[in-house]
Design a protein around this nucleic acid. Structure first.
Lengths: 193, 193
DNA sequence: GCAAACTCCAACCATGCAGTTGGAAACCTC
DNA sequence: GAGGTTTCCAACTGCATGGTTGGAGTTTGC
């Protein structure tokens, strides 16, 4: 049979995204990833070094996808409610990412994956918000960084603590569109000038 | 030597709180808990059934502590910024709880620990906020449940995604008092009538 | 003061798991 | 098309880990 190294690599990565998002770095099983990818697990070690290397590769890929899909330009920074909505939609459509992000936050004490790049990206967003503040379109009651924090917290927590959401808002309030509207509204109230 | 079964039980529980908060249900090691407690690990299985049972016991204890330490009465529900501050302070002083809570959220797909009791407790808080809404002291732009969600998200995320905070707000913005003030302010803006 | 019941431990057990190895099949080069 | 290189796999290794066992010390009930 012909070979397609890029395909096997991608199949491993796809399976790993699923597995790590579901079980986290500690709970994930290398055998399960290989089996679900239909590839021998030895390949993982050739391509990614070890389990942790695979996790890093997975996270890096998903970070890149998010950055591409949900930008925050200077213009967009004037309506952070809308940004919250876009973020919410992306997480709804690609539910793996925030879970991976929070596994990373809880599990790893050390350096974050691709820390420098991510920091730069965040700083760009903060700068965009700061500009909107300067233009008087966003509140100056708290710093731009804190505002970005607030929006992310509001959106992300929904996906990270679904059990608390269920117990607080109730099973019916769990409806996506209602929660999306609430998150957007809260973000707007938080950031209005 | 004399026996003190309650003490050994508590020592196990204390060690388990530490271990589970740090490593999560999957990453925690039973041997490590026993060793750190200075107790034979067989005791764990007598007292708590298995690893998962121990995790549930740990979480239940910490939930109870939080509920006792940070209540939300009808009077207190009129100033949700102040509630956010108290919550923040408790998490700062007892950093295990939110980590445990989020390990639970990420790891377990099934039923939450002590779900009925927790649901009832949350509903009480929601009712208190709804009352404050009725009195016109808190916004009615979103439901009481969503408001409580918003406050919790704002406070908790700080502890759950510290790496994102670092990359967003910067190492200096990470200072506790500054972040506390920002969280309180954001909660107030979010919930003001 | 003795027998039954309980607490505790050291050592053990079985299995699950990350990571390796040896070699077979496909590909590349000349 | 031979020789070397690369991709891939089945089978293996060794250790870490959750859970168990047999028995020794301690308490309780009578």
């Amino acid at each position: 049979m012909a070979w397609d190294t890029e395909a096997t690599r991608r199949r491993l990565l796809d399976a790993a995204v699923e597995e790590f998002a579901e079980h986290g770095p500690a709970g994930a099983r290398v055998d399960r990833i290989a089996r679900s990818a239909g590839v021998n697990k030895e390949r993982i070690y050739q391509y990614f070094g070890d389990k942790e290397g695979l996790f890093r590769a997975v996270l890096e890929q998903e970070l890149q996808r998010l950055a591409a899909a949900v930008p925050l330009t200077q213009d967009q920074a004037t309506d952070l409610g809308e940004y919250a909505g876009r973020l919410f939609d992306h997480h709804t459509d690609h539910p793996h990412f925030i879970r991976l992000l929070h596994w990373e936050g809880l599990a790893t004490g050390g350096e974050a994956v691709a820390a420098a790049k991510r920091t730069a990206l965040q700083h760009e967003k903060v700068a965009a918000i700061a500009d909107a503040q300067k233009r008087g379109l966003v509140t100056r009651a708290v710093s731009a960084g804190q505002l970005l924090y607030g929006v992310m917290a509001l959106v992300d927590w929904w996906f990270v603590a679904p059990h608390v959401v269920r117990m607080t808002v109730g099973a019916d309030g769990v409806e996506r569109t209602a929660q999306r509207a609430a998150v957007v509204e809260l973000a707007r109230r938080m950031t209005a000038p």
